[in-house]
């Protein structure tokens, strides 16, 4: 299994375009830029909804209205982040799959956070009908914040291995 995966990663890393992205001057920050711009959109909108569920800004909009306003740009943000993230992974794939922080991020924390996000986003329509959100919504919002902070923490730790 592992050898097979390393084989794929090795091929990915040696695609001519990927090699060019690594060696060309100034190119690498552009890939990071794609990842971070997508993440700003994704996490900015995700965390905003979580804070609203926690009760912030209740005099302006309900959580349901906010969720509706953010929905398409939220997912577009994830799409951009994944595109940039995959390219970043491709530039050093063999190293990444053996990195414990990367494995924790991609294998455990990200799937958890993403599943939780879908649940919270769906539920915010019912939880967020009135300005005051129920206790369960507050807990769900707080948990999502904790999950995404842990995803980001694992990502920040990747270069330390």
């Amino acid at each position: 299994m592992h050898t097979w995966l390393v084989g794929i990663c090795d091929r990915l890393q040696n695609i001519r375009l990927v090699v060019w992205l690594v060696t060309a001057q100034y190119a690498y920050p552009f890939i990071q830029w794609t990842h971070f711009t997508g993440l700003s959109l994704w996490l900015g909108t995700t965390l905003a909804l979580d804070f609203r569920l926690l009760g912030a800004g209740k005099r302006f909009q309900t959580a349901a209205q906010l969720s509706d306003a953010l929905f398409s740009w939220n997912w577009l943000g994830l799409g951009i982040a994944v595109l940039g993230g995959f390219t970043l992974f491709a530039t050093a794939a063999v190293g990444y799959i053996d990195n414990p922080a990367f494995r924790l991020k991609l294998g455990v924390l990200l799937p958890l956070a993403l599943t939780w996000h879908i649940f919270v986003q769906q539920k915010s329509r019912t939880w967020g009908r009135t300005p005051e959100t129920p206790a369960v919504a507050k807990l769900a919002g707080l948990m999502e914040i904790v999950l995404w902070v842990s995803v980001a923490a694992a990502a920040v730790w990747i270069p330390n291995y």
Binding site: S40, L41, W42, L43, G44, L47, A48, A69, L70
Partner: peptide
């Protein structure tokens, strides 16, 4: 992420 994401929306 919070600053840019919300401003951009």
């Amino acid at each position: 992420f919070l600053l840019v994401g919300t401003t951009v929306v």
